[in-house]
Write a protein that binds this DNA or RNA. Structure first.
Lengths: 358, 358
DNA sequence: GCGCAGTTTGAAAACGATCACCGCCGGGCG
DNA sequence: CGCCCGGCGGTGATCGTTTTCAAACTGCGC
């Protein structure tokens, strides 16, 4: 593949009308203006605007009229200064997440879920991605400085200390995914263990005897949970676990599969902790002359794009990604509202049957 | 494909430590505190913090020390109240864009570019997606209310009136893509016409005689420009244009291709305005018994994922998407800084040669 | 020694809201 | 008839900055 770059063109404008906000026409009305027009005090106008009870109906209407006439919109900055509530939340992507933000649709989906929920609550979202130690500090200070009412941290390594730092300063925080150590920060995660159990049970139920797994890197909580789910289900159905560990790449899936076949040539099913590795595993299986699903059934995890393009298409476990975002948003809203929240919420998965199982 | 949904689990926490920001330890220091510690007035402290000249070195150091000791961070809200600068910008996705935000990596990429540039300038980004008439009004008011220093509108239909509304209220605005009518709002776009010309020229240069095109919907400025580029290049090389119009779906690409073949069975190349349609076109070509590229060469546009998976992989035109975001950010920063900007900036494309041309 | 220009510095007024008080008013009760 | 009380509305302080303006201080020339 070769590439040719074309020139950049540009059209130098007169630079005329695009100056700084000129004092065009009338200034924005303040509460003072409204009060004056309605012939009441600022305080009363404020009460009306904030929907307070205890203001007589006629005077209320007068103020409302004034608001309408002047097209008054409260200045959130001024309000924020005194109330210490900015009606906005930060969504921060840590380094790891920021790097793959564009490649992996996961993040855009979570963001979308968060936006939906925040929007419904009338809150704004400020998006921050930490890209350096400096930006990390900026972002930390921003939150601690009280410019937002809470923070949603979307991370991938689960060991980032940002959430704890924030929580330590009494900033409402929610993270995605179970954090590595013991952490008091509430999190929203996928029911990894349960999803894995479900998948494995399916294998058991359809008569498979020797069910192996290719697990993900065991420093990632999600991968740990998936493996645990596999183990639990095998234990319950009195089968022996056969485990290989990959690192989430397609290639690692292939090589793990080969190792598995070497040691357990008669295995008849494999539960793989990610679609990408499953894709690799299927390839290795085919290379070894086995048919999928006839000789060996394969189940993936994540229901990513690749699951549909694998041949045969992968039976897999779908993640409720949008829901993660929405749930995180709801939790942080509660937190900011002073309500207590669950320390953790696990969202159910969907089992998606395609053709890599029979 | 069948689907089973697992239960949602959740762990009801004690609701203990997650209350509202308690008055834990010391309050955040204010400029007052700093001034007191440095034994100067608030005004002087402010001057130092904002790096003003005309403050004697020794007193400057005293203030800086105090800042260090107290770990003082200026309150941007209070500052914003008086300066009317919030050091943050809004990135709004209009309905159309919001709907496909998660599907099309385009948007996440633009957002990423914007974040990069804003981050480098120390500005915050508030992300807003308009999802209803109400949210549209909220967003409009937010910007007009001066809560942000400028707005980047990412839209897909190019006829949205939001940018003009904002610009009319003297809010610095930049949009992506050439707007439909005559609009005074500065925009950043891809050099569609130039990219198309380049692609077509390639076809001409490699000896193709009957070069057709499948254009996109002509109510989209980008599609119009691509068609214009095709026409211009054909005119220059004295060939007759052969045009069909699709609606950007794969299916429309196929059917357009069939129409083209019906009327011009001897065409030997086709320039398609999007990879997805090109994918459809290739399929139609194969169905008609023609080989790609031997009988008919095909060039797509956009360099999306599908271009790599098409068989054969598509020669196409790559868009500088990240750059769109970065450039938009730079422009709106200039605008907010009171500097004049170009009315339009066209970013160059890259011609990517794969196997659908020879 | 004194006036004067040129710097630095500080006091105080914004900025635009919220909110704790306080006063006013009318009605019920002793 | 006087007193208290509850509901409603207004006054003024406050939030944490920036910024204007005038005071104070410097050094300098006469």
């Amino acid at each position: 593949m070769s590439v040719t770059r074309s020139f950049n063109e540009s059209d130098d404008g007169h630079g005329g009308p695009h100056s700084r906000r000129a004092a065009s026409g009338h200034e924005r009305p303040t509460l003072e203006t409204v009060a004056a027009l309605a012939k009441v005090s600022r305080a009363t106008a404020s009460r009306v605007v904030n929907g307070s009870t205890s203001v007589s109906p006629d005077i209320r209407d007068a103020v409302l009229d004034a608001v309408g006439v002047l097209n008054y919109v409260p200045n959130r900055v001024a309000r924020g200064l005194v109330t210490h509530q900015m009606d906005s939340f930060a969504l921060v992507l840590t380094e790891s997440a920021g790097r793959i933000f564009v490649e992996d649709p996961f993040f855009a989906t979570v963001v979308h879920g968060v936006v939906q929920e925040l929007d419904a609550a009338g809150k704004e979202l400020v998006l921050q991605v930490v890209s350096s130690p400096q930006s990390r500090e900026r972002i930390t200070n921003y939150a601690i400085g009280g410019h937002v009412d809470g923070v949603l941290v979307v991370s991938v390594d689960g060991a980032d200390e940002l959430p704890m730092t924030l929580a330590g300063k009494n900033v409402p925080v929610v993270v995605n995914g179970r954090p590595m150590g013991r952490s008091a920060v509430p999190y929203v995660d996928v029911a990894n263990a349960d999803g894995a159990r479900q998948a494995v049970r399916r294998l058991v139920d359809s008569g498979h005897r020797r069910i192996a797994t290719i697990a993900g890197p065991q420093n990632a909580p999600g991968a740990v949970d998936r493996l645990a789910g596999y183990r639990a289900e095998l234990r319950d159905s009195r089968r022996r676990p056969i485990v290989a560990v990959g690192n989430c790449t397609e290639e690692s899936g292939s090589s793990a599969m080969r190792r598995l076949l070497d040691e357990h040539p008669r295995l008849d099913a494999v539960f793989v902790a990610s679609d990408l590795m499953a894709h690799g595993a299927v390839r290795a299986l085919r290379m070894s002359g086995r048919r999928v699903p006839d000789d060996v059934a394969v189940i993936g995890f994540d229901d990513t794009e690749v699951a549909r393009y694998t041949d045969p298409p992968l039976t897999t476990v779908r993640l409720p990604i949008l829901d993660i975002g929405r749930t995180m948003a709801r939790q942080v809203l509660r937190l900011a509202g002073g309500e207590p929240v669950e320390r953790s919420i696990l969202l159910g998965t969907e089992f998606v049957v395609r053709e890599s199982t029979c």
